[in-house]
Simulated scan of single mutants.
Amino acid sequence: MTVAKVEITLTQRLLWILNLVFHQVVAIVTVWLLWLFFDNFPLENVLMWHMVLCTAAYVPLMAEAIILFAGDNLWSQGLERPKKNWVHGVLLGISIAAVTAGIACEIRNKNVRGVPHFVSSHAITGLVSWLLAFVSIILGLFSWHAQGLKNIARPVIFKFIHNFIGIACYAIGIASLCLGFYLGAFRRLVTDDQLKSLVALVAIITFWSCLAAFKSCYSQLKNMFS
């Protein structure tokens, strides 16, 4: 019995290497940020938990939930599509729970200080991302059962809208996270060069994790009008 030899192209090898680098960058940014938080704030500090929970939600959890559908993503290549959907849903569910808890921490913190809620760009974008996350969950369920809903709309329409709203939720949430880096509580912890490097790395993480989703959106859009 002979086994067919699969030829691996140079492009594929390069994509695997870049994917590996991506995961390393996610790990470095996550560990460094969490170390900054826990090293500079007491555990009972409510604002610290706001930063911890929201950072964990967007950098490792949402990034990994989105990129797992990419064909060159190393850790999810062996998963069948239904299992990928489950893992995607679980990661996003944990992420949204973390964001919800993080926002609740900041609301409590502002109530204690007597500060108005949702007035800064950081707060407004964070709220918009949180609301879009719940919309994305509902659309995700529609997308999962799209075949059963084909009398209402073509399955590709449900999938496109879910994909688009999910990307918007993630991108706006990352924007909120980066805006938060410039606020006093975090800004005092880092130098100017560290801040610039951090924002650049988060931007790279966001772009690379969404790359396959962008391609999927484009393909779905073409199918909608074909």
Rank of each mutant, 00 (worst) to 15 (best):
P155L: 01
A146Q: 03
F186M: 11
C169F: 14
A175G: 04
C169Q: 04
N163I: 00
L183Q: 14
G148S: 11
H145S: 06
D192P: 00
D193C: 04
C169G: 02
A146N: 14
F186T: 04
Q194F: 15
Y182R: 15
D193H: 11
L183M: 13
C169E: 07
I167L: 14
A153R: 12
A153W: 08
F160M: 06
I165D: 01
G184Y: 03
V156Y: 09
I157Y: 06
L189C: 11
Y170I: 04
R187T: 03
L198G: 10
H162G: 01
I157M: 07
S197W: 14
L149W: 06
H145A: 13
I167R: 02
L179E: 08
V190C: 09
C169T: 09
L183F: 06
Q194R: 12
G184V: 00
G180I: 11
F158L: 08
A153C: 07
R188K: 15
D192K: 14
N163C: 13
F181R: 12
I152T: 13
D193Y: 09
L149V: 09
L179K: 10
P155H: 03
H162P: 00
F160P: 00
A175F: 10
R187I: 01
A185G: 06
A146V: 03
F181S: 03
P155E: 02
I174Q: 01
K150P: 02
Y170H: 07
V190E: 07
S197A: 15
